[in-house]
């Protein structure tokens, strides 16, 4: 082993592992290009050793990979890498002759150069493909974040629209405020109804007991002795609840608003006990 060779003997191990830093890798490749038999042999032996390490890790791949590959190669014969190279070489030689240029470059040298270029292009394409896979994932992540923000925005918009409706309701002279008082099961409960026969209304309740499982509070608008379902609501741990009420078709004046506890999901006529009720208007 020559002294000049020695540093490359060390680089060969790192090169076989693909672990050389770019400058060392380039230096070693230049050395290999000079056809150093010792390094070629070390590299060969190291690669066999690494293949044996890999053999300790064997793992069956998922079946779809095989199917995808066989599907991919079914239709046409494979594009031999060496064949287009030969075509390129033949073309280059023809072109050189046609132009009357002395063919100082041997076909094999041209071939080797194209081989190397094609290999380099293939490597770049692979790196780009890997990069693309990563970017595709990044894009998917960003898309998910955008979707989340979109959702949050929709919620904020809905809330804001709700507040705008409430303000409009309060500003309308036709709106009146109806107070509901707690009935027997919940004497401390309170309710307020902002009611506008054209625009509908907003009902809020406070200090109601939590609804038992399977039950829900339902608001009724009683007109001409007939109760109409005006919406259902649940209450938070402080007994607060709210429900937006749509205008009731064909009803000009509501006499009484009342809240009962009904089996979920609420019904079209009251069956349960009254928890809140307004005085007759």
């Amino acid at each position: 082993m020559s002294a000049a060779h020695e540093p490359f003997a060390e680089l060969a191990a790192g090169y076989a592992l693909g672990a050389l830093d770019p400058r060392d890798a380039a230096a070693f490749e230049r050395h290999l290009a000079e056809r150093c038999a010792e390094c070629e042999e070390s590299l060969r032996a190291y690669r066999e050793a690494l293949a044996r390490v890999a053999a300790d890790e064997r793992e069956a791949p998922p079946p779809h990979v095989r199917a995808a590959l066989l599907g991919r190669i079914a239709p046409a014969p494979p594009l031999r890498r060496s064949r287009p190279v030969r075509l390129v070489v033949a073309w280059a030689a023809t072109a050189a002759l046609a132009a009357g240029i002395a063919a100082v470059v041997t076909a094999s040298a041209v071939g080797a150069r194209y081989e190397a270029r094609i290999a380099a292009i293939a490597r770049e394409a692979d790196a780009l493909r890997a990069e693309l896979a990563v970017q595709t994932r990044t894009v998917a992540d960003l898309q998910r974040k955008v979707d989340e923000q979109d959702h949050a925005l929709t919620m904020v918009r809905a809330e804001s629209a709700e507040q705008a409706r409430t303000l409009a309701l309060l500003g309308d002279p036709a709106t009146r405020v109806v107070t509901l008082a707690g009935a027997k099961p919940s004497p401390n409960a309170q309710g307020r109804m902002l009611w506008n026969p054209q625009a509908g209304g907003l009902f809020v309740a406070a200090a109601l007991p939590p609804a038992p499982a399977g039950k829900i509070y339902e608001l009724w608008a009683i007109a001409a002795g007939k109760p109409r379902a005006a919406g259902t609501f649940s209450v938070d741990p402080d007994g607060r609840g709210r429900v937006r009420v749509e205008p009731i078709a064909g009803v000009a004046a509501v006499d009484v608003f009342a809240v009962t506890l009904e089996p979920e999901p609420g019904g079209t006529s009251p069956t349960g006990e009254i928890y809140l009720a307004s005085k007759e208007a």
Binding site: R44, R52, A54, L69, R72, R80, R81, S82, A122
Partner: peptide, 24 residues
Amino acid sequence: FWELWRAAGDYDPSRGSPEAWVTV
């Protein structure tokens, strides 16, 4: 394996076993 399929024509057994070819 797509690459191996395309590069099969360049495989040279004197330069390494199929195992090493695949592993590299």
